[in-house]
Design a protein around this nucleic acid. Structure first.
Lengths: 114, 114
DNA sequence: TCTAACGTACGACAACTTTCGTACCGTTTG
DNA sequence: CAAACGGTACGAAAGTTGTCGTACGTTAGA
């Protein structure tokens, strides 16, 4: 069980967009943004375990999320810093609000995506 | 030949991301952003005509581009306003630079975000 | 140690995508 | 009118994706 993650510099925009271009994966990413790091089972999806594993893999291998084993669960989190470094603003757009960059540039404090 | 376009309010993020999550379509969108409105044949892709038609259709039906017949060519353009209204900043991210919104909010033309 | 929980691995299958060739259609131009 | 041009429509083939069930591996706890 290797859990491959691409290094930051190898994260490709087309791969990321492709990974995010599916309703279930978009939901996963939004839940992750809300809840922060959490076990896979903390995000309830109405699909089988093996299908869920497939979607986590797509997100992980495209560079959107990071997964690491911790006890008998796998803790999953958004690769916010890597994504922001590589494609500034993308996460903000995807999370449905203003991007943190946009809020910062406008000079409003507390511009955090809920 | 109906050339369906979704109305602005029906443009879905997942569909747009999915459409953009393919190298050829990403290239089309970037060319369109550079060149402005143009005939399909003005963007050279190393694929057959029917394959190109397929990719234009995906972009059109997801709401990314607009196509209208003009004489014997079809003029194609980015749906910038619709996309900016629906998903502010997305186009900026995809076009590889800062978003126009970000630059406007920052209020200085040459502002370089680290 | 035995069992339960969490999640992956594998194999299968259906559905969708990507690609192409060929045929076609509407417009312009000789 | 006929031919050339720009592009779509259709059908087919190959590849990829999304889905599931079952089996498995690891860790935690009784």
């Amino acid at each position: 069980m290797t859990l491959y993650h691409p290094p930051r510099e190898q994260i490709e925009l087309a791969d990321v967009l492709n990974a995010l271009g599916h309703p279930i994966r978009l939901k996963i990413v939004r839940s992750l943004a809300e809840q922060g790091e959490c076990a896979c089972s903390a995000i309830s999806l109405d699909i089988s375990k093996s299908t869920a594993t497939h979607h986590w893999r797509v997100l992980r291998e495209s560079g959107v999320i990071r997964q690491q084993q911790s006890g008998r669960t796998i803790m999953t989190s958004l690769r916010r810093e890597d994504l922001d470094a590589r494609f500034p603003g993308l996460l903000g757009v995807v999370l449905g609000g203003r991007s943190p960059e946009l809020a910062a540039a406008a000079g409003h404090p507390g511009g955090d995506t809920a």
